[in-house]
Amino acid sequence: MTLKTNSRRPVKGPTPGLWARYRAYLSRTGLSPSASNYFSIGVAIAGVGLTLGPIIYLVLGGFKDLHQYAMNPSGLPDPFLFRNYWGILSTGLFWRQMLNSAFIAIVTTVGVVILGTMAAYPLARYKFKGREVLYGVFVAGLMFPLTVAILPLYLMIHSWGLVGNPFGVILPQIAFALPVTIIIMRPFVAALPKELEEAAFIDGVTRIGYFWRILLPLARPGMVTVGVLAFIGSWNSYLLPLLILAGDPAHMTLPLGVTAFKGQHGSDNTAIMAFTSLSMVPALIFFIFMERRIVEGLTGAVKG
């Protein structure tokens, strides 16, 4: 994120000596690291509690049966029943829907990142007539949510025979994720040192060669960030898969699977809680794994 002020000067990591002196200062002024840390930890615990509380409640609910839930909705399961979770995990459908979500999200992400970065390069570095208009067209896409265009979109995808096909979801998702990708990537590409480009051209590298061999590796932090955003967007999307993939549960993505499961097991709230809990797991694992990449991408962008 941002911070242009610093980006002109290369910012090195905090010098240990300086940082230590800063901490020493904090303790001198009474804001000793330990005292203020307790306060920070207090806030952290409150934040964690508010975030995790509802999720834990949902997970625990999945270990109850309906009778337990009706009698004792707020307490711990007694006994813990694994029936709900096992019932979902032992049928192939949950896994199948997870794979569908993963396939669609991965292909969408790759498509968005490649197309978006490609488009961002000339928009950032070429001087040509109509460049800002072109950029403006992409940016305007940000103002138009998918809900607005859903029926014409469906009719078009249907006429191409892509209903029930993952690519019927992937292509529009790429298109709708392009604005934010280009908005992020354009200044990112523009921030890469111009000298590098000039040096490359002097060495006889073509623009295209420069793009593939030099720009893409350098732009990786930004690409990771937009990629993660696109992945999350795709993984969570609901309306488009609802229209394109509903019908056969084997074609569904996980959010659809949750609603379909909710419909099928209407009165079995604890099974719904179990299914919902399980469908959180892949997103959370992906997130725990990628969170560092996001922050790396963000800080990388700052240091650009």
């Binding site: 029926l151 469906y154 249907h158």
Partner: peptide, 12 residues
């Protein structure tokens, strides 16, 4: 609400 109307619209 969605599948039947859209399918009828599309002619298929």
């Amino acid at each position: 609400r969605t599948r039947i109307p859209a399918a009828l619209q599309s002619g298929d």
